[in-house]
Design a protein around this nucleic acid. Sequence first.
DNA 1: TACAATAAAGATAACGTTTTCAAAAATGAA
DNA 2: TTCATTTTTGAAAACGTTATCTTTATTGTA
Lengths: 344, 344
Amino acid sequence: MGVTIKDVAKAAGVAPSTVSRVIADHPRISLSTKKRVKKAMKEMGYHPNANARSLANKSSQSIGVVMPAGADNALQNPFFPEVLRGISRIAHSMDYSLLLNTGETDKEILEGVQRMVHSNRTDGIILLYSQLDDPVVNFLLEYDFPFVIVGKPSDRIDEITHVDNDNVRGGKEITEHLIKQGHERIAFIGGSQDLVVTVDRMKGYQLALEEAGLPYLEEYRIHTEFLESGGQQAVNELFSLEEPPTGLVVTDDLMSIGVVSMLEKCGKLVPEDISLVSFNNVYLSEITRPPLTTVDIHIYELGQQAAKCLIEKVKDKSEPAKRVIVPYTIQHRSSTKEREVPSY
Amino acid sequence: MGVTIKDVAKAAGVAPSTVSRVIADHPRISLSTKKRVKKAMKEMGYHPNANARSLANKSSQSIGVVMPAGADNALQNPFFPEVLRGISRIAHSMDYSLLLNTGETDKEILEGVQRMVHSNRTDGIILLYSQLDDPVVNFLLEYDFPFVIVGKPSDRIDEITHVDNDNVRGGKEITEHLIKQGHERIAFIGGSQDLVVTVDRMKGYQLALEEAGLPYLEEYRIHTEFLESGGQQAVNELFSLEEPPTGLVVTDDLMSIGVVSMLEKCGKLVPEDISLVSFNNVYLSEITRPPLTTVDIHIYELGQQAAKCLIEKVKDKSEPAKRVIVPYTIQHRSSTKEREVPSY
DNA sequence: TACAATAAAGATAACGTTTTCAAAAATGAA
DNA sequence: TTCATTTTTGAAAACGTTATCTTTATTGTA
């Protein structure tokens, strides 16, 4: 059915190997035959068979992308399409394909990854999340298979190339923004503590508080994965404290929207009654009400960098483990407000 | 490096072809050798090489997924991860891999698709969008390559298997909801008219209006892709009309959030001053303020059905073009309100 | 003009499967 | 037993490339 390298060879009056060399742009090939072959290829509508190529090459020119398990609504986070876009950009420009892996459970994910690498379908893998003690990471490490993490590895950090933001500094800086505005009771709402990104951002929050001599209170920290169910109660509790917070650091824009909405149910307005800062600067954070002051982590760039690192590593396995920190910027919008100091 | 079928054969004392048959669970193979071979496979950690397989088989056991061009923020729509999840679910269960294709421009997308199919990397393709006169569709059709559209084809509808909602009925029904609540001046805000989904939903809107004897006005229709820039102005105009609408049909939850926010800038509250209904029932629409009354199109199910249809088609090319309509349901939440009839 | 270099092209063996065709082994009927 | 079936296995040829050798053609130099 398809036209093969042999057909082209015959048509151009050369050997298949010559055609192959033309494809690979091999130097030792005369201009005249190169032209002749290329003409034949074009005329016959030749397209190399990737599978045959991969087989001969032992390289698939494709990179696997692993999304976290999505039993909950985490995947609806616009973060993912956005990194994907960045990755895709680079992959496309380097002629790599993208192999996607998702799953409902951690087990499914692991199986998927194993299948990918065992079957030689992919040359390297990008992990779009980082959690404590991830079996996927262990597998990849043990197998000595090229991979990069978007985020910060929970372990063996020097052996794993990863691209991340400085989330603790970002957490610190955004918290300081609240502090500068006069807030003294600042709470933290974040996702699962198994996610490295959560603990980093929280660490930054803690640092800022301590440096400013403000209290870092247990009851000011909420961790919730399912905003709708547990979240409301947690927020209720937070605001029935004797000294409820006036500032909120939330680890994710999507979550922030939920929080703002819960707050309103409690009769609290953002930013009038309570200031809120957030992370990611997803498109949403611009169009929601109020527009969120949020640290822009440059998701697209994260994706691009990850893809670049991976491809480097794939091309040269001896490439050392790298860490790329893409700088964040703070998007000041209107979810925070100078705190009016009560005048006793 | 990897252990091959030959190694296993040698270890089990059989021919490679026998091992292959064991893998394929061929009937004509004795239980004893089957066991012996399986044991050898397990012991040696054998995993079939997908590329070799694809080459011999002329089938890659993977399906390509095409996302729309993402120069704007459209891809940040949680719709995409969600369909992807549905597709992935089925693909995984049928042992198919997912090949992802995105691009900044329509041209890039087309190139990507062509590369995928020419190179034999994929057995079939799922298109996650449907727009007027799509060169990708034309290519696929001409090439007679298996594909399915999530959405409604703009053309040659009987030749293209697609899975869709009944968007005109959905549009009609949700508009009628507004009408039942006493609204008589209802406007429509949607995305690009090149998107089939937009025109369908608008058609439903129109139908409902006409059936109720309400005016279907040009100046009540807004089409905008970039909500942030053009949108605000459009909304302003809408509400500086002599008779501004009291109800709004918006084609997408994400867009709705933007609209609600713009309305507030104009001093209009949802649902107090204006009722709004929407489409998709993305997680967001539940946590935003107000929670949106929206038609739940069952995105996950769309994805699953699409994957199923495609795999059927891939396995048997003679499978006729199908249309699957996944039923929608309406999620009543609190973005609409009974209209207080002004008492003259 | 002859002889080494060097450049260009061809032959052929991988790469790891599947599959067709043929051979051997087991079974059953006569 | 023996011959015809029927199972079960093996040998070998695809599948479409790439890459390693050779071989042949083209230079340049003495």
